[in-house]
Design a protein around this nucleic acid. Structure first.
Length: 406
RNA sequence: GGGGAUAUGGCACAGCGGCAACUGCGGCGGACUGUAAAUCCGCUCCCUCUGGGUUCCUUGGUUCGAGUCCAAGUAUCCCCA
């Protein structure tokens, strides 16, 4: 039976269930959650490194495919792994709703539950606070929200209960509960989101006790460099976070607007020795430029969602496989791609047929291709950083046709 | 041979006196960024396109006005011989 303890904050008391704590590691391996920087590019801020987790090492820069509900939609875990995936994302909000984090704990934790023995990162649900804003009521204590995408029931989350969910799930890396605001937002609103996210970072840090799990703080601050700076400085003071998420980007702003603050943030304010995770970015060109700015980790639903909608990434830009021009096309999606789909004899004509007929294999094959595409892109980026010529790599990419279509 | 029903844009359907005509499918294109998403949004008769022209099986009629009402014809489907 899960035991119960009480967590008290200034205004309320809430019951927190710790499910199957006996599964937790009793002591921390000193190698866990250390970040080794293997190479730094001489002409950009790019770094190549290795982040160590209980379920394996993560080479950086890295793209993390998203499996929100404990599945990368349509793909077998073995397939996901065979594409080169080193770490997967899942989501505490969705999994706490269905099937429930305590059930997952009872069944041995997220890794065994979803048949994935590699590293997993769970997002807190801060993004859902943003995207479900109309169904949420924020306060300093926490967030009251309706699970409109499930049964519509009201739930109440605090940083403490959110950490307990994350600990029950048992991912290798967990994100603090934060508040992500959209673009454009008033400075006042952004400032308040920084204050709230900072306060919640402190409480998450205090509430998080699981030794075989890394808690990442999240930098907010929108498009205001001074607020970004305030956010990261607070996190550094708050505790020894093994890594940092950078949230609040890719929320509708033009790419240039993001880089205006992301570049100086990484160059001047983010601690050099910790991994930096740019949350929610999956556009290939933005990935490449962000690595140059000093980002180490990315996640995004873009490759998998767009795949299910019939879009394939390529070195020429995005391709809508449903287009009539592919009906008679007997070539692979991208002849320069070495993924199992492009090298497996699957033609554009066949994919066009599958997409038009709404066959589920279309989404599966395109998801495989798109995930591989981004993983491979980051692999190439890493090789370039190790070779000391990442600047050239970026220039080459920007001068190729890819940019205008991504 | 007798009786009944139906004919609408690529297909399937709606429309019961004011219609370039509902809806779905199909077709063409687009969007998608810590997944409320195998979803969503446009366009889909013609033209010299903030307007004009020609449409709802055919022909004729009633009416200010007909896809809608009347008559005849044609075609298809069903039932009984």
């Amino acid at each position: 039976m899960p035991h119960t303890e009480k967590t008290t904050t200034s205004k309320f008391t809430t019951e927190v269930h710790c499910a199957h704590q006996e599964l937790w590691a009793s002591e921390k391996d000193p190698a866990w959650f250390t970040y080794d920087i293997v190479a730094e590019d001489p002409t950009t801020h790019a770094r190549a490194g290795v982040f160590h987790t209980p379920h394996g090492d993560i080479p950086t820069p890295i793209f993390m495919p998203v499996g929100t509900k404990a599945t990368v939609k349509g793909l077998l875990p073995d397939t996901v792994k065979s594409l080169g995936t080193k770490i997967l994302l899942a989501n505490t909000y969705h999994l706490s709703q269905r099937p429930g984090d305590e059930l997952i704990a009872e069944l041995g934790g997220l890794h065994s539950f979803m048949c994935w023995d590699g590293p997993i990162l769970t997002d807190s649900g801060g993004f859902q606070v943003f995207s479900h804003e109309q169904f949420m009521k924020l306060s300093d204590e926490g967030v009251k929200f309706r699970a409109v995408d499930y049964d519509g029931a009201w739930s109440w989350w605090t940083p403490e209960t959110n950490m307990q969910i994350a600990q029950n799930l048992g991912a290798d890396i967990v994100m603090q509960l934060d508040q992500c605001v959209g673009y454009p937002s008033s400075r006042t609103k952004v400032e308040r989101s920084v204050e709230l996210s900072s306060a919640w970072a402190d409480r998450c840090y205090q509430a998080h006790t699981r030794l075989d799990q890394a808690l990442f703080g999240i930098v907010q601050g929108g498009m205001h460099l001074d607020l970004r700076r305030r956010s990261i400085e607070h996190l550094e003071q708050a505790g020894d976070f093994p890594g940092y998420g950078i949230g609040g980007y890719s929320v509708g702003e033009p790419h240039e607007v993001m880089f205006e603050t992301l570049e100086p943030l990484c160059a001047d304010y983010m601690p050099r020795t910790k991994p930096r995770y740019l949350m929610g970015v999956g556009n290939p060109t933005t990935l490449i430029r962000s690595v140059a700015a000093g980002i180490d980790m990315f996640d995004c639903v873009l490759p998998t969602r767009t795949a299910r909608m019939g879009t394939a990434f390529s070195y020429q830009g995005r391709m809508n496989m449903k287009n009539t021009k592919y009906v008679h096309d007997s070539g692979p999606i991208d002849s320069a791609c070495t993924c199992p789909v492009c090298t497996g004899g699957y033609t554009r004509a066949y994919l066009n047929h599958l997409v038009r007929q709404h066959e589920m294999l279309a989404g599966e094959l395109l998801s495989m291709h798109n995930i591989y595409f981004l993983l491979n892109l980051m692999h190439q980026a890493r090789e370039a950083i190790l070779a000391g010529n990442y600047g050239e790599f970026v220039t080459k990419w920007l001068e190729s046709g890819g940019v205008k279509d991504f």
